[in-house]
Design a protein around this nucleic acid. Sequence first.
RNA 1: GUUCCCGUAGCUCAGUGGAUAGAGCGUUUGGUUGCGGACCAAAAGGUCGGGGGUUCGAGUCCCUCCGGGAACGCCA
Length: 586
Amino acid sequence: MESLRELGTEPPQRLDLRRIPFSGQWGLASSVCLQLGKNGAEEPVPEGLSKKEARELLKRRAQERSQRLAEQVATSLRSRGLFADVQAQNGYVNMYFDTADVASRLLRAVHHAGPDYGRGEPKNETLMVEYGQLNTHKPGHIGHLRNIALGQALCNILGHDGYSVLRATYIGDTGAAVFKWLWGYSKWHQGETPRADDGGWWEHIYVEANKAITENPEYEREYRELQLRWDQRDPEVMDLWTRTREVSLQYLHNLFATLGVEFDVWFYESQFGDSGKEIVRELLDKGIAEVDEGAPILRLDAKLGLDRETYRTVVLQRSNGTPLYQTKELALTRAKFDNYPIERSLNVVDVRQTLYFQQVFKTLELLGYEQARKSGHVPYETVVLTTGPMSSRQGNVVIYDEFSADMTERALATVREKNPEMPPAQQAQVARAVGFGAMKFGMLDRDNTKVLVFNREEALDFDGFSAPYVQYAHARACSILRKAPEIDWENLRVPSDLASVETDLLEAIGNFGDAVGRAAREYKPLYVVTYAYDLARAFADFYRDSPVLRADDEDLRNFRLALVYAMKTTLANALGLLGIVAPDVM
RNA sequence: GUUCCCGUAGCUCAGUGGAUAGAGCGUUUGGUUGCGGACCAAAAGGUCGGGGGUUCGAGUCCCUCCGGGAACGCCA
């Protein structure tokens, strides 16, 4: 600012400072001269130019003015000696720091923080994140996998960024599908022992029952009667439901366990029917809701005085008095607000339910729940097959158990090929890390807003932009560190003439906290995925060009070892946030 | 009809209003005196769906059109 005044130019109110696009040196850039450059560029334009040409000319003049101004500012700043260097480039003023100093601070910071490297400031806020909403009496499929991978990563990321996170799941144990399954089971599979380890078995019974019920009105009546008996707590039906539900829940626990997922709170759909009806009564009593065609409804847009269709109208309960999905959702969300010390509640659910969640949170706002304002739906697009959407009714789903078995089997074959001398137990362990890593990575490697077309061949491909690539970088770093002497942190000396592969790697390591913060702010684990890949790539470039163990100078070797250590630590942290194991060997 | 999302290299996708739009796969050509070749290098490949606008500056923001998907009162 002072430099600008010295030059007789009045600086703007706020000085814009940004990081210089990295090319070997760290520093800050200001575009202030670009903004000022437009002044005085409107000198007369020569006759005979087209409008476009005139515009281009003015643009060019502004550019030149900016650059001249930037050069003057740079000269002035240089003389003050605050920065290691100051340069004018493309109209920007670039102020550079001392490279070795920045590098040294960064490496020590990573060493000091270890697993906490990249943590955000404590936020003093508790969130509840709900994900992994599976149904009992049905298998998990790859659509659920995207949900679980996203939810798990999001919880880890929010936690690392400084929030206190409660992990919750909500299990559908009373939907129509459950009763169709129960009907089919008692009709044709009575003697069979329910299986906690076989999603396909549950799927088969459901698909068979659904088909029969659709085709035969008599069966339709039978299944509805079963549902009615459950509503009336008929002992025989309750017993069947309880027994099979128990095993099915065991299946779900197993499924979550293989993915390394643990929840602090389990909610069940069957808990919220009655409390849902209570909320509906309350909404009617307070005059917020009304009855229309026999069903309680809430005209949200009218209630909120909105002209444009936004929240529309929500039907709160069936006209026959039974609860709807959204009835229970209201009760569930209120239970979260009432029973847990949370400021925010997030639901990781696919994008098709956006409107319902907007309605639920708005309704609770009308009931005076302040937490509802900050709460919300974290939507993501669906997983579809190359043949179209999955439909568990028709049975064209890719069942989770079968897919994960494929993945680990394929991984095991690769491990055996690459490491024939490795003990079988370790081969299996590495294969699990790689198989599950690749599976999750494949679910996280695109934006939430994009439909994921599942392609088995691509999913099984471990090359390129994939978990194994990133995991491999980690294993290689571990391998170098295993063979190296202890790092002498006391006498860490960073050379002043760093190679570009070294500064690029340092830059990548230093970006971790930003990636975590951004991913937490925008609820997008993808940022951590691309970050982890970029870091691994920077490391690959580094160890190709910069020998570590064979570095000819002791200080240089010590520095490079510290660099490898910092990269390994950061990469392990990043993979950990994604729920992916970082193997020491592979 | 209303609202929301998507459209970037042959394919699948990144890209925080900022400096020369990047990866992976695929294609072509290469790489063992080498810390582990699940790797690396080079080449080819772009009207960022079209058109307006805002801005010193637009793939990014606004408007509009086109193409694809989704949600819209008693399914979950």
